[in-house]
C-alpha cells in the first residue's frame, strides 16, 4: 500500500501520435531517461479526431494536465495539424470560460527521436501541476 498522498499526484494524459510522438516516447525509454510516473501515454493515429468536449471531459474526470504530442508539420494526414491547432486554441478558450488554467493543455510536436522535447514537456507540465494543484 502506498502513502495516501501518492494517489493525489496529478495525472498527466499524453495523446501521442502513432507516427511520431509515440515512437518518440519509446525512444525516451530506450535511452533509459526517467520522468515522473504520473504520465500516461495513449497512442492515437491523429489527435484531430478528438472534439472539444473530449478534452473538457478529461479535466472533469480528474486528468490534471493533457499534452497533445503531434507530428507537427510532418503529420501524415493532410490538413490535420492545422485543424488540430485551431481546435486546441478553441479548447483553450473554453477552458478559460470554465476557469480551468489553460496551460494545463499543451500542444507540441515530438518526433521519433525527440527525447529531449518529450522530457521537457513532461517536466514542465509536472512542475506546473505540482506547484499549483
Amino acid at each position: 500500500m502506498l502513502p495516501a498522498d501518492r494517489a493525489q499526484v496529478p495525472k498527466i494524459l499524453i495523446l501521442a501520435t502513432e507516427a511520431c510522438a509515440y515512437p518518440g516516447a519509446d525512444n525516451v525509454g530506450q535511452i533509459h531517461a526517467e520522468y515522473p510516473a504520473n504520465t500516461y501515454v495513449v497512442r492515437v493515429p491523429a489527435p484531430v479526431m478528438f472534439s472539444e468536449p473530449f478534452y473538457l471531459h478529461c479535466f472533469e474526470k480528474g486528468i490534471a494536465g493533457i499534452i497533445v504530442m503531434s507530428c507537427g508539420h510532418e503529420c501524415p494526414y493532410p490538413g490535420a495539424y492545422d485543424t488540430l491547432a485551431t481546435r486546441i486554441s478553441r479548447v483553450h478558450e473554453l477552458m478559460g470560460e470554465r476557469g480551468i488554467q489553460t496551460n494545463r493543455l499543451r500542444l507540441c510536436a515530438v518526433c521519433t527521436v525527440c527525447s529531449k522535447a518529450f522530457l521537457k514537456e513532461v517536466h514542465q507540465m509536472h512542475e506546473l501541476l505540482t506547484s499549483t494543484v
Binding site: 507516427a19 515512437p23 518526433c111 527521436v113
Partner: peptide, 10 residues
C-alpha cells in the same frame, strides 16, 4: 528538413 530518423525508421 524532415527529421531523418522519423522518415527512415518506419
Amino acid at each position: 528538413l524532415d527529421c531523418c530518423s522519423c522518415i527512415c525508421t518506419p
